[in-house]
Simulated assay, not measured.
Amino acid sequence: MRGLGELEAKVMDVLWSAEKPLRVRDVLARLDQSRPLAYTTVMTVLDNLHGKDYVRRNKAGRAYEYTAADSREEVGARLLRDVLYSSGEVEQVLLHFAESATPEESDILRRALRKGESS
C-alpha cells in the first residue's frame, strides 16, 4: 500500500467524516481550501485514491459516488505494517519501538496484548 500525499489525506479526511457517499463536487465543497482547487484536480485525486484501493466508487447516474474503503484506523494500521515490513528487520524495529514507547503508548500496547490473549 502506498502512502497518502497532502491533498489525498485531506480528501480522505472528508470521506471519513462523511455520513454518505460523496460526488466529486461534494468533496470539493467540503475541502478546507487554503488555495482554490479545480474540480478536475479533486476528480484526479479521487481516481488515484481509487487506484490505490483507498476509496470505493459506484456509478450514480453519469457521475461516481465515493466512500472510504476502510476506516482511518485500518488504513493507519496498514501503513504502519508497511513501514515495519519495509525495514527488513521487523523484530528489531518492534523492539526499538517498544523500548522507546511513551508510557501512554506502552499502556495501549499492554491492553492490546491482554485483549489478544483473552480472545
Rank of each mutant, 00 (worst) to 15 (best):
S100A: 06
D82S: 15
S86K: 15
A69D: 05
S34V: 10
V55S: 09
R110C: 02
G5F: 02
L95Q: 15
V11G: 02
L84R: 06
R25E: 12
P103Y: 03
E19M: 05
V83Q: 08
L79Y: 06
S106E: 13
N48A: 01
Q92D: 13
L28G: 05
L28T: 08
L4M: 01
D53E: 15
A68T: 14
L22W: 06
K10F: 04
R56M: 14
R111V: 01
A18T: 05
T102A: 03
V75L: 04
M12N: 11
D13F: 01
R57E: 04
V27C: 11
D32M: 13
V55Y: 07
W16M: 05
V75P: 07
R56W: 11
A29M: 14
L37H: 03
V11A: 09
R23A: 12
S86Y: 15
E104L: 05
T67N: 10
T41S: 12
F97S: 09
R114I: 14
E74R: 01
L49Y: 09
V14Q: 10
D53F: 07
R30D: 07
L22V: 13
V83A: 11
S106G: 09
S119D: 08
R81W: 11
A68R: 01
A18P: 09
V42L: 13
K115V: 06
R110A: 03
S71W: 03
L22M: 14
A60E: 08
D70M: 07
G3V: 01
K115Y: 08
V83N: 02
A68N: 07
V14W: 12
Q33C: 08
E117G: 00
V75G: 01
T41E: 13
A60Y: 04
E105G: 08
P103D: 14
L80T: 13
I108A: 15
D47M: 03
D32I: 14
Y54W: 10
T44C: 15
L79G: 14
G76N: 00
R57M: 05
A77Y: 01
V75H: 00
L109H: 03
L80H: 06
E91D: 15
R78A: 06
M1Q: 03
Y66F: 01
A101H: 13
R56V: 15
D107E: 07
R57G: 07
D47R: 05
V93T: 12
S118K: 01
L37N: 05
S106H: 08
R110D: 10
Y64W: 02
R25M: 04
R111W: 02
E8P: 03
W16N: 14
S106D: 11
P103N: 10
E73W: 00
Y66M: 03
R23S: 06
L109S: 12
L84A: 05
Y54V: 11
L15H: 02
S17W: 11
E8W: 04
E65V: 08
R110G: 02
V83I: 14
V14F: 00
M1F: 04
D53S: 07
D82A: 14
V93W: 11
M1D: 10
M1V: 05
K115N: 05
N58P: 00
E99K: 12
A38H: 03
Q92Y: 08
T41C: 09
R25T: 11
V55K: 05
V45S: 00
L15T: 06
E73Q: 08
Q33P: 03
F97E: 04
V45P: 04
